[in-house]
Design a protein around this nucleic acid. Structure first.
Lengths: 339, 339
DNA sequence: GCCCGATGTGTGCGCGAGCACAATCAGATA
DNA sequence: TATCTGATTGTGCTCGCGCACACATCGGGC
């Protein structure tokens, strides 16, 4: 259209220089005129580049949070198959920082084009991020945002606000001076996750703003010790017969739900995360509300962010707070994986 | 790999016949061995087909439901640009069936490959669907599912259940015998939408199951007549001072929210749809809950369904109920357009 | 022995881009 | 005038696939 060869147009599009001003002008005019946009499909075909992404997330069992997140990653991988995007999944033990650290050298050697990182271990992530910055490998963070990094994108919820909402949900179910319980599961060697701390802060803030006048008991339970927990709970409830509402800030609400269900007692319980076992409790009434985000969407978006950044070269929003979803028995069945 | 030419492989892949059994075997073995999947990108490039989709939705103002839905459609169009997908938007007047009917011949003449239809006018949609079935043009329904059609997909919410949930949300805020109000906006010539009827059924069912003992008043208001409504509401609230909770089953909750806000009165109000004006009310406290679905996701998915069906030739789930989202002041700000 | 159609099989082009390399041209230099 | 040089510009191949068309082989009818 402008009377020059495709080679010249190519030079202009990618401004590789070596083009006369005259040609430049002519071509630019035509580009504007026809509102030219490169055909990304043809480009991807011609480039024939392979994209190797690595995901670094905690290992998981079927139906758990990270399993659902992985579903989203799988979906993204399928969808991007024809763009030669391949995803390598590396898992670490979320209760063992060293298992995370051990993966760092493997990533450096892997010759990958992008990394998705679950931010369980803040310091290690900062270290890894710095290394990736050096290597100019883009990365995406899931779960908690970490300021000192140059991540391409972050996907997670605002923990404080999700706790704040939990505050409202519980508060609306009790009298303004009714005592409540916060349940905690401690596992040997497991440190308190920031996320959980922040949720609790938000929760307490809401109650404080409402001038809530009850007492908040803290009940310590032990992961994987059902019998011991049973007696702790029995003792607690015996001592505090007036307490019939509580909250737990991680995804283990089902352990409590099962306890109350077995006992045939109704208790207003709020928990986090739509994992299969929590959903069962929601359905049988032993959990009243779940606060959640869509892990599948989160996983999908992480991969897509890398893809958009690298392949489509679009600008990706850096901080992406996931919507905070409120699930009850009545709407859980429609909480499908719309990706 | 199997010693035959690409032409033969092509014949086998598309089973166009004219292939010896021997060649067939050899090629199939290799295909299995390398787990062959066609490169959709290259295919789409080679086919160089243009896809012309038409959307048939009500006309809208900025920030309204259908506007948001259109955002999703825009997004899909952008994303599918390189696949030569083009979308023509046809709008009708949602209060005038004839405006819908008038578009039917235009669609028939338009030589399109797919249609998205908002199901305001059931009979007309059935007629159009039958015509499209004849022409073998796939179509997707939004809003209400209509049984007698062969739509490729349907995206919408279950109206009954979304009303049922509203029942719970309101019930939890009142005493079990406290009187409440259902507000309705009547517009001249506007017929009651099925969706609204179903929501009310669900709502009443919930209360009935709870053995709710209060009275449910029905308050008739008039769209576009603010002054008249003000006096109707003044009169109603004067007569029924005990009523301070209510619901409205369409997206016009903001009209009531504004009324209560102006009056400086607190009233527990539940409404539908995250449209801009409802969000303002949620934020200033004049609406307590909104029940919603993500219109952007819905719009996006409709187009994507046609794309997947026609271009990717994937199987698309026919009935897709959208999640029923519960929005409050505290979580509305995170209700972004994650597509 | 020749032409015929039927049945298999192979070849070449192009979709829209990227990229390496070849070609052209004007002016400077020997 | 012939050669060289640097600045431009053009050409040709490739990516993986679809498709039209050319080609080869074989048996049957005249």
């Amino acid at each position: 259209m402008s009377g020059v060869s495709t080679g010249t147009v190519d030079r202009i599009l990618h401004n590789r220089g070596k083009v006369s001003e005259e040609a430049q002008k002519k071509v630019e005019n035509v580009l504007k005129e026809i509102d030219y946009h490169p055909n990304l499909i043809a480009r991807s075909l011609a480039l024939k580049k392979n994209y190797h992404f690595i995901t670094l997330i905690p290992s998981f069992a079927k139906g758990e949070y990270w399993d659902k997140l992985c579903e989203g990653i799988d979906k993204a991988e399928q969808e991007l198959f024809s763009y030669n995007v391949e995803i390598e999944r590396m898992c670490f033990n979320q209760y063992d920082k060293s298992s995370f650290d051990a993966l760092i050298p493997r990533i450096e050697k892997a010759d990958c084009q992008g990394v998705v990182i679950a931010t369980q271990f803040r310091d290690s992530v900062v270290k890894l991020a710095a290394r990736l910055d050096q290597l100019q490998i883009p990365y995406v963070l899931i779960d908690a945002f970490i300021e000192n990094t140059h991540c391409v994108a972050y996907y997670g919820t605002n923990s404080y606000d999700s706790g704040y909402i939990a505050g409202r949900l519980l508060y609306e179910q009790i009298r303004p001076d009714e005592n409540i319980a916060i349940f905690r599961f401690i596992r040997k060697g497991e440190m308190q996750v920031t996320q959980v701390t922040k949720r609790e802060e938000g929760f307490r803030s809401y109650l404080a703003e409402r001038n809530y006048g009850g007492r908040i008991y803290s009940v310590q339970l032990h992961a994987d010790e059902t019998e011991k927990n049973r007696s702790i709970l029995d003792a607690f409830l015996e001592e505090h017969r007036e307490v019939n509402a509580g909250i737990i800030f991680n995804s283990r609400a089902h352990l409590l739900g099962n306890y109350f269900h077995d006992k045939g007692e109704t208790f207003k319980l709020i928990g986090y995360d739509v994992i299969d076992r929590n959903v069962e409790c929601l359905n049988d009434g032993s959990i009243t509300h779940l606060i959640a985000q869509r892990p599948e969407v989160q996983g999908f978006n992480c991969i897509r962010a890398l893809f958009r950044h690298l392949v489509l070269q679009e600008k990706v929003e850096q901080i992406n707070y996931m919507p905070i979803d409120i699930l009850m028995k009545e709407n859980i069945k429609y909480y499908n994986n719309y990706i």
